[in-house]
Computed example of a mutant assay.
Amino acid sequence: MNQTITFGEVLMRISPLGNRKFVQSNAIEFYFGGTELNVGISIANFGGKVKHISCISDDFIGDTALSYLNKFDLDTSSIVRSSRPLGVYFLEVGAVMRPSSISYNRSHSSFSEIKPEMVDWKTALENGTWFHWTGITPALNRGSQQTLLEGLKLARKKGMTVSADPTYRAGLWKYGENAKEVLSELINYSTIYIGGINEINELLETNYSYSNDDFIKASKHLMEQFPSIEKVFDKIRTSINSSWHKIKARMWNGTEFKETNELDITHIVDRIGTGDAFAAGIIHGLQHFDDYKAMEFGNAACAIKHTYLGDVNYANEKDVMTILNGNTTGRFTR
Rank of each mutant, 00 (worst) to 15 (best):
164 A>K: 07
136 I>L: 12
60 F>E: 13
262 E>V: 13
295 M>A: 02
20 R>I: 00
28 I>E: 01
246 K>T: 07
119 V>M: 05
28 I>Y: 05
212 N>F: 03
81 R>Q: 11
147 T>I: 06
199 E>R: 07
207 N>V: 03
103 S>N: 15
81 R>T: 14
300 A>P: 09
198 N>R: 15
311 D>Y: 13
120 D>L: 09
279 A>K: 02
290 D>V: 01
147 T>C: 01
331 R>M: 14
149 L>N: 08
114 I>Q: 07
189 Y>N: 15
307 T>M: 10
275 G>Y: 04
201 N>A: 09
131 F>P: 06
87 G>W: 14
203 L>F: 08
185 E>H: 13
177 E>C: 13
43 I>C: 04
159 G>W: 12
64 T>N: 10
299 N>R: 01
226 F>L: 05
329 T>R: 06
230 E>V: 09
9 E>W: 14
276 D>T: 07
333 T>V: 15
100 S>K: 02
309 L>K: 06
158 K>S: 14
47 G>Q: 08
286 L>Q: 04
210 Y>Q: 02
165 D>K: 09
271 R>T: 01
64 T>E: 10
99 P>M: 07
285 G>Q: 01
191 T>E: 10
233 F>Y: 11
202 E>D: 08
315 A>V: 04
167 T>S: 12
167 T>I: 14
231 K>L: 00
107 S>M: 14
133 W>G: 05
158 K>P: 12
76 T>V: 14
108 H>L: 11
315 A>E: 11
71 K>D: 11
289 F>C: 00
210 Y>N: 10
58 D>P: 03
51 K>E: 04
173 W>R: 01
143 G>Y: 08
100 S>Q: 04
229 I>N: 00
153 K>D: 06
235 K>I: 15
155 A>T: 01
55 C>A: 05
234 D>E: 08
325 N>L: 03
71 K>V: 10
68 Y>L: 07
218 A>H: 00
183 L>S: 08
185 E>K: 14
57 S>Q: 03
9 E>M: 14
283 I>F: 11
103 S>Q: 12
249 A>V: 09
121 W>G: 06
312 V>R: 04
115 K>S: 14
209 S>G: 11
